[in-house]
Nucleic acid binder design. Structure first.
Lengths: 328, 328
DNA sequence: CTGTTAGCGCATTCAA
DNA sequence: TTGAATGCGCTAACAG
C-alpha cells in the first residue's frame, strides 16, 4: 500500500506539503494541491488510520455497546446512531453484550485498547471496575436508555413512568383486573423502573395487586417465556398480559400459545412496552407503547460529540406514544 | 493513560523487557515478569491498539459489512460472527449498508483506512472500484450469502435453489396455482437466483407462469409492500404469496392487510424465504424455509481467518429446512 | 506557502 | 535474558 511518502515523492513535494494537502489542515498552493491529489489518486492512496490516530491521539471512532443487537429497539438505535456518527466524521465500533455482564466488560477492554474517542453505553447493571477506570481516564460517556448506579453521565432514555402510565390507562379502559406483568431483571434500571411504575399505579387503575401475576424475566424471549409459564403454573388466568420490552412480549406470547393453545391464547389481551413489526397481525392485535429508538440513537451521538468537544450536555427523556390496536 | 514506558519505569526494567512480558513474545525471567505485571496492574495499563497496529502492520480487526442490520437474518449472523471472532482474538467493525450501494462503498473506504485484517462482505450487487482496489491490495475477503460478479472469493451462502425447491413443493402440496412472488432486486445475486429457481420450477409444480403474479421489491419492507400492491392492483387474486426474504414477507403481509383487510388477507397462504419470530402467531400461520444465519456467520469468520493465515478455503452452501406450519 | 524535523506508543533487531 | 536503538506512517511545530 502506498504511503504518504510515496505520494509526496510522486508529486515532487515534501512530505509535509503532501500531508497538508491530504488532511486540508492548512493552506497550500493550488499547484501543489493539484499535483498531490493527482499523485494520491494514481497510487490509490488511503491514509493509514492507526498511524494518524497515534499521531493525533484521537481515533475518530466511537464505541457503541448495546444490550442485545437482536432486539429491534437496539438494532434500530444502532442503525440511526451509526448513520449520524458517520455524517459527523466518526465511525462506530458496535459491540453486543447480549444482556451479559461479562461480555459487556470484555468489550469495554477492547474499546479501551482501541482508544475510542467516546462511548455510547447501554449498561448491564452495576458499574464494573473496567468501566469506572474508563470513566476515570476521562473517556466521554453517554448512557442509552439505562442508567448505571454511580455513573454520572448524560442519559438519553425513554420515559418509563409515562410509558407505563399509558399502558395502565389502556388496561383500565379495557376493564382488565387480572393482569400478568412479565418484567425484566431488577438489576437493570429499565427493569426496575418499569416494575416500580407498574406496581405504584396498578391499584388506582383497578388492577389486582396480587404478586402472583408478576414475574421477572431477563429481557430476552426465552427468559420471558419461562416467566410467563411460571405465572400460568400458579393456576391464575390473566385476562391481559403486559410485556416489559419487545423480546419479553415475544416470549410471553410464545408461552401463552405453548401453554394454553392458540384458541385460549387469543382470549387474552397483550400490550407491550416497545412496538414490534408484527403486532398488527396477531389475534387479537397487540397494542404497545412505542418510543423512537432512532431518536435516542441520534440524541446519544449528538450528545457524545458535544461531550467530546467540551460542550455541556443535558440528559433527555423521550416521551412514549400509545399505539392502540384494540379498536380496529 | 499509562504507556508501556511508564510500566517499564515503575517495574525498573527496560522498555523492551516490558514489551516482551506484556506481549508474551519471547522468554523473560520470572522475576521481570512478576514486576512488570504488577506495575501494569497498578497503573491500569492498557496497550495502545493503534500504536501496536502501526508497528505490527496488522490490527486484529475484521470488517463486517452487512446489507441490512435490521433484517433478523443479518443481526443474527452478525451476532454469531462477532462472538466467534472475539474468541479468535479479533474485534469486528460492523457496518450496515442498508441495501444501499453508495453507503456500502463509503464503509469500504473506512475499512481500508482502518486497515482491517480481513473483510466479511454481503455485497450490494456490482463490484465497485473501491472494492476491487481493496481486493487488489491483497485484502482477504469472504462473501456472505451473496456473490458479486467478478469477485473471486470464498462464498458462504444458503442454498437458494434447494430452498426455493422446498417452497415449490409446499405450494404444490397445498394445491396453489395462483401464486404471487414478491422478490428482491435482480442486481443482487440472491434476488436473481431465487427468482430464477422459482421461474424454472413453477410450471412443473402446477403454478401459473403468468408474470402478472411476479414483482420485485428491494428486500426491504416498504419496497416489498409496494411490489405486493402492484400485483394486487392488476386485479389478480393470488391464493398464496411467496416472499423472497424476511423483510419482504413482512412488507407483503402488510400490503395484504392494508389492501384487502384482515378478513380477506387471512384467506391467503403465505410462505417465506427466511423464518421470522412471529410466523406462528398469524392467521393462517406462515410457513418458511429457514437457514441458520448463525452458521453462515461462523463459517464466514472461520474461513476469513483461514484466509488471513494463508490456509486454503472452500466455498460452502448451507442447506435450508422447511418449517411447515400449515398442518397445526 | 514550503521543507525539515521530531515524536506519538509500540515491537523488534542487534549487541551484550 | 536484557537494554539500547530503530522505525512503522503520520501530523504538527518550526524555521525559512
Amino acid at each position: 500500500m502506498a504511503t504518504i511518502k510515496d505520494v509526496a515523492a510522486r508529486a515532487g513535494v515534501s512530505l509535509g506539503t503532501a500531508s497538508r494537502v491530504l488532511s486540508g489542515s492548512s493552506a497550500t498552493s493550488p499547484e501543489s494541491r493539484a499535483r498531490v491529489q493527482a499523485a494520491a489518486a494514481e497510487l490509490a492512496y488511503v491514509a493509514h488510520g492507526p498511524a494518524r490516530s497515534l499521531r493525533r491521539s484521537r481515533t475518530d471512532v466511537l464505541g457503541l455497546l448495546v444490550s442485545d443487537i437482536r432486539n429491534p429497539f437496539f438494532s434500530e438505535l444502532a442503525h440511526a446512531a451509526e448513520r449520524d456518527a458517520l455524517r459527523a466524521g466518526y465511525s462506530v465500533l458496535l459491540a453486543n453484550a447480549n444482556e451479559d455482564e461479562a461480555q459487556a466488560d470484555e468489550y469495554l477492554g477492547i474499546f479501551a485498547s482501541q482508544r475510542i474517542d467516546g462511548l455510547l453505553l447501554s449498561p448491564q447493571g452495576p458499574v464494573t471496575p473496567r468501566l469506572s477506570a474508563l470513566v476515570a481516564s476521562g473517556m466521554p460517556v453517554v448512557l442509552l436508555n439505562r442508567h448505571a448506579d454511580g455513573l454520572d453521565a448524560p442519559l438519553f432514555e425513554t420515559d418509563n413512568e409515562q410509558g407505563v402510565g399509558l399502558v395502565l390507562d389502556w388496561l383500565q379502559r379495557h376493564g382488565h383486573r387480572d393482569v400478568a406483568y412479565v418484567g425484566g431483571p431488577a438489576s437493570i434500571s429499565t427493569g426496575a423502573e418499569r416494575l416500580a411504575a407498574y406496581v405504584a399505579g396498578r391499584a388506582e387503575h383497578g388492577i389486582t395487586t396480587s404478586d402472583a401475576f408478576v414475574e421477572a424475566g431477563d429481557f430476552l424471549p426465552d427468559g420471558a417465556a419461562a416467566a410467563m409459564t411460571r405465572i400460568l403454573d400458579r393456576g391464575v388466568r390473566p385476562t391481559a398480559v403486559f410485556g416489559a420490552n419487545g423480546p419479553t412480549t415475544l416470549g410471553a406470547v410464545r408461552a401463552l400459545h405453548a401453554r394454553l393453545g392458540r384458541e385460549a391464547a387469543s382470549a387474552i389481551d397483550v400490550i407491550s412496552f416497545d412496538d414490534l413489526d408484527w403486532f398488527d397481525f396477531t389475534t387479537p392485535r397487540i397494542s404497545a407503547v412505542r418510543n423512537d429508538a432512532a431518536s435516542i440513537g441520534r440524541l446519544g451521538v449528538r450528545g457524545l460529540i458535544d461531550l467530546i468537544d467540551g460542550r455541556p450536555v443535558e440528559s433527555q427523556r423521550v416521551a412514549m406514544e400509545l399505539v392502540d390496536r384494540s379498536a380496529a
